[in-house]
């Protein structure tokens, strides 16, 4: 958790207080302030309204605002916690927090479940997995025979869909992830542990005095 001994945190009009955000995440106050610098630069890249829209999100991630992709859209939707079509600073920090090395496995497991439950039915369905698999194959220009794709899906559901109802529920997903921990690898960005030294380009001098524990 962010640890703070301070009397003077910055305020960002229209955005959540960095001390509050630090108290709810693994980021320290100065790291939240550094993330605000990053957020500012992304949120003004197309429309300077203090919010990140989908175009700005894609531009920041891929340096290409036209790069439509199934996964990129889904990640944006998950960052857009308030379902407003834009990401505000609080959404941005809390969503990135899930990728922090110190975030709990439960949070990471839940995020991946929602990522793959594209239709928000409460289940990861075979058709969704197939759609994502095909998207991945197209992206990487890998070619697999249709039969091979079905075999992979059969095997995946045999392993994960324990009750055999043709879809993967949340508990089934948790159990599957415990048996296959590498599935959460995409959910940890190691450099979030110390963003202020790893990415000095968007760090400024914090007004907050912090003592790490």
């Amino acid at each position: 958790m962010g640890c703070l001994h301070s009397t003077a945190a910055r305020e960002y009009p229209g955005h959540e207080n960095p001390v509050k955000l630090a108290s709810e995440t693994a980021f320290s106050v100065s790291e939240v302030e550094a993330l605000y610098e990053l957020f500012k630069s992304i949120s003004c890249s197309v429309v300077d309204d203090g919010l990140i829209n989908k175009e700005e999100f894609q531009l920041a991630l891929f340096k290409n605002r036209k790069k439509e992709n199934l996964f990129a859209n889904r990640i944006f939707d998950l960052f857009d916690v308030k379902r407003k079509g834009v990401i505000d600073f609080g959404d941005f920090v809390r969503s990135l927090n899930v990728f922090h090395p110190n975030a709990s496995l439960e949070e990471k497991t839940d995020f991946t479940f929602r990522l793959y439950d594209m239709d928000c039915t409460g289940y990861i369905e075979r058709q969704e997995v197939k759609q994502m698999l095909i998207a991945l194959l197209c992206e990487s220009e890998m070619k697999l025979a249709d039969d091979t794709i079905e075999v992979i899906l059969d095997q995946t559901f045999e392993d994960a869909d324990v009750d055999g109802d043709g879809k993967i529920g949340k508990t089934e997903w948790s159990d599957f992830v415990i048996k296959n921990p590498s599935l959460l690898k995409i959910m940890t960005l190691p450099y979030l542990r110390d963003i202020t030294t790893t990415f000095p380009s968007f760090v400024f001098n914090s007004e907050v005095d912090e003592i790490a524990t």
Partner: peptide
């Protein structure tokens, strides 16, 4: 800590290879 189940590669391992799930780009402003 367990290692992954010794089955053939599962669909989610493949899906996790998507570059669109890598958020590193955010920090390369």
């Amino acid at each position: 800590k367990g290692s992954d189940s010794p089955t053939i590669i599962n669909a989610f391992q493949l899906i996790g290879m998507s570059s669109f799930l890598d958020l590193s780009g955010f920090f390369e402003q």
